[in-house]
Simulated scan of single mutants.
Amino acid sequence: MSPRAPVTAVRLGGRPDQPLLLLGPALGSTAQQVWGAAADHLAEHFQVVGWDLPGHGHNRTPVEEPFTLAGLAAGVLEMVDLMGGGLQPPTFHYAGVGAGAAVGLQLLLDAPGRVESAVLLGAGATADSLVAGAEQDDHDAEGYAAVVDALAGFDVRRRLGRIAAPVLVVAAPGTDAAALESLREVAQGVGDGRLVEHDAAVGPPGLLADPTGLARLLREHALGPPDTTLDDLARELGALVGTSGGAAQEATPDDHGDHLDQRALALVSLAALVASGDHETLAEEVRAARAHGVGPQEIADLVLRVAQLCGVPVAESALEVVGPVLSEDRPG
């Protein structure tokens, strides 16, 4: 049995109560380098956690003995279990690039009940199909060589049919025929696979060409398409608040919220942030509301109203952020 390889968690955003999304890097790169920009968008929907390969980025644990790709996948599972801290091992969504995608395939095979969905970029089912990452100074020679050795024996072509979780394989437009065939082999070989060509896919030297587009693609694969877009909602609301003559006033994307003044919009934003528990931007929005003329008493009344509707603990948690900001206005 291959020993577990040491991997290090890299928290990239989101809240612990959101679905867990693991992000695997390419060889020679770190989770932050590959996924940092996309994580900014993914954190709205997921608890986003990357992981660093041995000898890469934050992972400076010495490699004491050789490991295989199965050992690397086992290290990722151990990391997730330590994060969960409970009796029930957490399930997760997964996305990976190159070596990180190969680990994703290994996880799908070794822990099929744990992986809810997977997005794979720059990786087929064999070692020679993997893209490398951006060559950075942020890795040591020993760790890099250990990962290269682990990947050397990677070949799961005969086992692809055992994978049942939804798998999205992403190819960059213009991918050469041989590489595209390797990706297609994975998409067609698993039980529920799909191959798409997308500008968001990996581009040289193994970093993401379009982090925003990839985040959207990943979110829809893992959680499904949104129930409605903002534009759809605007059209429905426009029909409901049509003119007295019966003609609907259809809002355009640039018109969203334009019929409310800045004070009203500030109060709406504050209520939403307090109710949702999004405290990262709450302090900034409180200051913005004060700048638009919203008084301290109005903000206090708003927090109290949210407490009545959403529960006192929600309001008490928000008060820890709101209180210090309101205190900034007090003299002395």
Rank of each mutant, 00 (worst) to 15 (best):
P204S: 11
T61W: 01
G98F: 07
V63M: 11
L130Q: 07
V169Y: 05
D149C: 13
S182Q: 10
L22R: 01
P54H: 07
G96P: 04
A123V: 03
G224F: 03
A70E: 11
R216C: 12
E320F: 07
G323K: 12
P66K: 02
A125D: 08
Q308L: 15
A141S: 08
A177P: 12
V241R: 10
D140F: 02
V115F: 06
L109Q: 05
L218Y: 13
V10S: 08
D231I: 09
P25K: 03
A95G: 03
V97I: 03
A102I: 13
A251S: 13
A172E: 06
L20I: 01
R287S: 11
P89V: 05
R287F: 06
L270D: 04
V202T: 07
V7Q: 03
Y144E: 14
L319V: 09
H259T: 07
G14Y: 11
R4P: 13
A209P: 01
E181Q: 14
A187P: 05
L87V: 14
Q88S: 14
L72A: 08
L217W: 08
L207Q: 09
E65G: 12
A272H: 08
G104D: 02
P211W: 07
L237C: 08
A275M: 01
L230R: 09
G28M: 01
V148G: 03
L160D: 08
L230Y: 08
L72H: 00
E44V: 14
G242Q: 09
A141Q: 10
Q308D: 14
